[in-house]
Amino acid sequence: MYKFHGWFDLAESPGEPEWGEEKFDELIEDVRERVDAVDWMSGEARLKVFNGMFVLWVNGMPNHTGVHRAELDELLGYIARVLPGSHGILYEWDEESSEWPWPYGYRVRVMARGEITVRTDPFLSPLQPVVEDP
Protein backbone atom coordinates (compact mmCIF):
# COMPACT_ATOMS: atom_id res chain seq x y z
CA MET A 1 0.00 0.00 0.00
CA TYR A 2 1.05 3.59 -0.68
CA LYS A 3 -0.47 6.28 1.55
CA PHE A 4 -0.20 10.00 1.00
CA HIS A 5 -1.79 12.99 2.71
CA GLY A 6 -0.84 16.59 2.13
CA TRP A 7 -1.83 20.25 2.01
CA PHE A 8 -0.24 23.22 0.26
CA ASP A 9 -1.04 26.94 0.51
CA LEU A 10 -0.50 28.43 -2.95
CA ALA A 11 1.18 31.81 -3.20
CA GLU A 12 3.02 33.77 -5.86
CA SER A 13 6.06 34.76 -3.83
CA PRO A 14 7.48 34.44 -0.31
CA GLY A 15 7.69 38.26 -0.30
CA GLU A 16 5.64 40.97 -1.92
CA PRO A 17 3.75 39.85 -5.04
CA GLU A 18 5.73 40.66 -8.17
CA TRP A 19 3.44 39.91 -11.09
CA GLY A 20 0.03 41.29 -10.23
CA GLU A 21 -3.31 39.64 -9.85
CA GLU A 22 -3.86 38.83 -13.54
CA LYS A 23 -0.71 36.69 -13.85
CA PHE A 24 -1.46 34.95 -10.53
CA ASP A 25 -4.99 34.17 -11.73
CA GLU A 26 -3.56 32.64 -14.94
CA LEU A 27 -1.21 30.41 -12.96
CA ILE A 28 -3.96 29.35 -10.55
CA GLU A 29 -6.18 28.47 -13.52
CA ASP A 30 -3.37 26.31 -14.93
CA VAL A 31 -2.95 24.61 -11.55
CA ARG A 32 -6.74 24.06 -11.41
CA GLU A 33 -6.65 22.37 -14.85
CA ARG A 34 -3.82 20.10 -13.73
CA VAL A 35 -5.67 19.22 -10.52
CA ASP A 36 -8.91 18.56 -12.42
CA ALA A 37 -7.01 16.19 -14.73
CA VAL A 38 -5.98 14.00 -11.79
CA ASP A 39 -8.01 10.80 -12.00
CA TRP A 40 -7.01 8.50 -9.18
CA MET A 41 -9.35 5.67 -8.23
CA SER A 42 -7.89 5.51 -4.72
CA GLY A 43 -7.05 9.15 -4.16
CA GLU A 44 -7.96 12.74 -4.78
CA ALA A 45 -6.52 16.17 -5.44
CA ARG A 46 -8.65 19.24 -4.67
CA LEU A 47 -8.06 22.96 -5.02
CA LYS A 48 -10.16 25.09 -2.67
CA VAL A 49 -10.33 28.74 -1.69
CA PHE A 50 -10.56 29.82 1.95
CA ASN A 51 -10.66 33.49 2.87
CA GLY A 52 -9.07 34.35 -0.48
CA MET A 53 -6.25 31.79 -0.12
CA PHE A 54 -5.88 28.85 -2.50
CA VAL A 55 -5.19 25.49 -0.84
CA LEU A 56 -4.33 22.21 -2.57
CA TRP A 57 -5.19 18.97 -0.79
CA VAL A 58 -3.93 15.58 -1.94
CA ASN A 59 -4.90 12.30 -0.30
CA GLY A 60 -4.92 8.66 -1.26
CA MET A 61 -4.35 5.02 -0.34
CA PRO A 62 -3.85 2.97 -3.50
CA ASN A 63 -2.67 -0.63 -3.28
CA HIS A 64 0.53 0.28 -5.17
CA THR A 65 2.29 3.54 -6.04
CA GLY A 66 1.28 3.17 -9.70
CA VAL A 67 0.96 6.59 -11.33
CA HIS A 68 0.19 8.33 -8.05
CA ARG A 69 3.75 9.13 -6.99
CA ALA A 70 4.86 10.20 -10.47
CA GLU A 71 1.83 12.47 -10.86
CA LEU A 72 2.38 13.91 -7.38
CA ASP A 73 6.03 14.60 -8.23
CA GLU A 74 5.02 16.40 -11.40
CA LEU A 75 2.19 18.43 -9.82
CA LEU A 76 4.15 19.51 -6.74
CA GLY A 77 7.27 20.25 -8.78
CA TYR A 78 5.25 22.45 -11.12
CA ILE A 79 3.66 24.37 -8.23
CA ALA A 80 7.02 24.92 -6.51
CA ARG A 81 8.49 26.20 -9.79
CA VAL A 82 5.71 28.59 -10.90
CA LEU A 83 4.40 29.65 -7.47
CA PRO A 84 7.53 29.79 -5.29
CA GLY A 85 5.66 31.38 -2.38
CA SER A 86 3.69 28.16 -1.93
CA HIS A 87 4.30 26.05 1.15
CA GLY A 88 3.00 22.85 2.71
CA ILE A 89 3.72 19.22 3.53
CA LEU A 90 3.08 15.78 2.09
CA TYR A 91 3.23 12.71 4.34
CA GLU A 92 3.97 9.46 2.49
CA TRP A 93 4.28 5.79 3.40
CA ASP A 94 5.08 2.97 0.99
CA GLU A 95 5.10 -0.57 2.34
CA GLU A 96 6.56 -2.01 -0.88
CA SER A 97 9.60 0.26 -1.11
CA SER A 98 12.99 -0.33 0.47
CA GLU A 99 13.82 3.36 0.00
CA TRP A 100 14.49 5.10 3.31
CA PRO A 101 12.50 5.28 5.65
CA TRP A 102 10.02 2.83 4.20
CA PRO A 103 8.42 0.53 5.17
CA TYR A 104 9.23 1.42 8.77
CA GLY A 105 8.04 5.00 8.87
CA TYR A 106 6.71 8.06 7.10
CA ARG A 107 8.63 10.42 4.90
CA VAL A 108 7.65 14.09 4.70
CA ARG A 109 8.08 16.25 1.63
CA VAL A 110 8.23 19.92 2.60
CA MET A 111 7.54 22.66 0.05
CA ALA A 112 8.85 26.14 0.86
CA ARG A 113 10.42 28.96 -1.18
CA GLY A 114 10.21 27.10 -4.48
CA GLU A 115 12.00 24.00 -3.16
CA ILE A 116 10.83 20.54 -2.13
CA THR A 117 12.92 18.78 0.48
CA VAL A 118 12.53 15.36 2.05
CA ARG A 119 12.59 15.07 5.84
CA THR A 120 12.22 12.40 8.47
CA ASP A 121 8.88 12.31 10.24
CA PRO A 122 9.37 12.94 13.98
CA PHE A 123 5.77 12.22 15.05
CA LEU A 124 4.54 8.88 13.66
CA SER A 125 7.82 7.12 12.91
CA PRO A 126 9.01 4.50 13.44
CA LEU A 127 5.63 2.88 12.95
CA GLN A 128 6.56 0.30 15.57
CA PRO A 129 6.25 1.14 18.47
CA VAL A 130 4.81 4.66 17.88
CA VAL A 131 1.68 3.61 15.94
CA GLU A 132 1.69 -0.21 15.97
CA ASP A 133 2.63 -2.89 18.44
CA PRO A 134 5.93 -4.63 17.69
Rank of each mutant, 00 (worst) to 15 (best):
residue 40 W to L: 02
residue 40 W to K: 02
residue 41 M to E: 15
residue 42 S to H: 14
residue 43 G to M: 08
residue 43 G to V: 12
residue 44 E to W: 12
residue 45 A to C: 09
residue 45 A to I: 05
residue 46 R to K: 14
residue 47 L to D: 13
residue 47 L to G: 06
residue 48 K to F: 15
residue 50 F to N: 12
residue 50 F to I: 13
residue 50 F to A: 14
residue 50 F to Y: 15
residue 52 G to I: 12
residue 52 G to S: 10
residue 53 M to I: 11
residue 54 F to P: 10
residue 54 F to I: 13
residue 54 F to A: 14
residue 55 V to Y: 08
residue 55 V to W: 13
residue 55 V to D: 12
residue 56 L to Q: 06
residue 56 L to G: 09
residue 56 L to D: 09
residue 61 M to H: 15
residue 62 P to F: 05
residue 63 N to S: 13
residue 63 N to R: 15
residue 63 N to Q: 13
residue 63 N to T: 15
residue 64 H to S: 11
residue 64 H to L: 06
residue 65 T to G: 08
residue 66 G to Y: 00
residue 67 V to N: 09
residue 68 H to L: 09
residue 68 H to G: 05
residue 68 H to W: 03
residue 69 R to T: 11
residue 69 R to N: 12
residue 71 E to S: 06
residue 71 E to P: 01
residue 71 E to N: 10
residue 71 E to V: 07
residue 72 L to F: 05
residue 72 L to D: 00
residue 72 L to M: 09
residue 73 D to Q: 08
residue 73 D to M: 08
residue 73 D to L: 05
residue 73 D to N: 09
residue 75 L to K: 02
residue 75 L to M: 07
residue 76 L to N: 01
residue 76 L to R: 07
residue 76 L to C: 06
residue 77 G to W: 07
residue 77 G to S: 04
residue 77 G to R: 05
residue 78 Y to I: 02
residue 78 Y to N: 03
residue 78 Y to W: 06
residue 79 I to C: 02
residue 79 I to D: 00
residue 80 A to H: 00
residue 81 R to P: 11
residue 81 R to T: 10
residue 81 R to N: 08
residue 82 V to G: 02
residue 82 V to C: 06
residue 83 L to E: 03
residue 84 P to A: 06
residue 84 P to E: 03
residue 84 P to S: 08
residue 85 G to E: 09
residue 86 S to L: 06
residue 86 S to N: 08
residue 86 S to H: 00
residue 87 H to P: 06
residue 87 H to L: 12
residue 87 H to Q: 10
residue 87 H to N: 09
residue 88 G to S: 04
residue 89 I to T: 11
residue 90 L to M: 04
residue 90 L to V: 10
residue 90 L to S: 03
residue 91 Y to H: 10
residue 91 Y to D: 04
residue 91 Y to C: 04
residue 92 E to Y: 01
residue 92 E to S: 04
residue 92 E to C: 07
residue 93 W to V: 05
residue 93 W to E: 05
residue 93 W to M: 11
residue 95 E to C: 12
residue 95 E to F: 06
residue 96 E to N: 14
residue 97 S to A: 06
residue 98 S to C: 08
residue 98 S to E: 15
residue 98 S to W: 09
residue 99 E to D: 06
residue 99 E to M: 02
residue 100 W to Q: 07
residue 100 W to H: 00
residue 101 P to D: 02
residue 101 P to S: 04
residue 101 P to Q: 05
residue 101 P to E: 01
residue 101 P to R: 07
residue 101 P to Y: 04
residue 102 W to F: 03
residue 102 W to H: 03
residue 103 P to H: 04
residue 103 P to W: 02
residue 104 Y to L: 03
residue 104 Y to S: 01
residue 105 G to P: 00
residue 105 G to V: 00
residue 106 Y to R: 02
residue 107 R to D: 01
residue 108 V to W: 02
residue 109 R to Y: 00
residue 109 R to C: 00
residue 109 R to F: 10
residue 110 V to H: 13
residue 110 V to M: 02
residue 110 V to L: 06
residue 111 M to A: 13
residue 111 M to T: 10
residue 111 M to Q: 00
residue 112 A to L: 02
residue 113 R to E: 15
residue 114 G to Q: 04
residue 114 G to T: 03
residue 114 G to N: 07
